[in-house]
Nucleic acid binder design. Structure first.
Lengths: 97, 97
DNA sequence: CTGATATGCAACCATTGGGTTGCACAGGAG
DNA sequence: CTCCTGTGCAACCCAATGGTTGCATATCAG
């Protein structure tokens, strides 16, 4: 799953916000959300696949922590589109003047 | 549809990139993509609903143009998450020193 | 008017997605 | 060893999604 799809789900965005406060396990997170532990696990798997999260097992617990690197791709994409749009506008302006 | 969901589809992201080069109609866009005109129209409707695009009818044509304002929400969200993550890390660092 | 083109609307289809429940298994705590 | 708790895996459900085709409608050009 790519980063954009990973961020498209509101629950996953909330999970990311939670993880921004520090690592947590699937069970811990599922207590803060109105859905089942398995649903949370699925979301975390999606985030993992997108590279947005790190898994760190110790004993029987799996602690998930945030990886912010991939988020850069998103801002980058937005910046690129915005840039070419602005560039186009300024060219238009030049032609008119 | 919210902005994040609108951006989750690769075709829609490509549409946005196309529109960044200037306004176009659904039919024009459908010529640059391997899918039907109706599929493009659906995607444009999604983008419109997300406020990412403007519709401007003249005669029988409907010209779609990009609206970059809403894209700011995305970068903002990414920046916020990144900020609280970094803040958490620096607090940790302070405690350790 | 006639013909070609741009759009809209609706039905339909297959796949994905978010969620559930149930059960098996592994690792700490008593 | 036994019990409780955290995970994993699988099956299943239903709604949403991305795509199609077919047809009706509207506008522009000859």
């Amino acid at each position: 799953m790519d980063v954009f799809s990973a961020l498209s789900d509101p629950t996953r965005r909330e999970l990311i916000r939670s993880l921004a406060d520090g690592p947590a396990t699937a069970t811990q997170l599922s207590r803060q959300f109105p859905i089942s532990r398995q649903a949370i696990t699925k979301h975390l798997a999606a985030l993992d696949e997108a590279g947005l999260v790190d898994r760190n097992a110790s004993g029987r617990e799996i602690r998930y922590s945030l990886r912010t690197e991939r988020l850069g791709e998103v801002s980058l994409w937005v910046a690129e589109v915005g840039a070419s749009w602005d560039q186009r506008l300024s060219k238009l302006r030049d032609q008119l003047s």
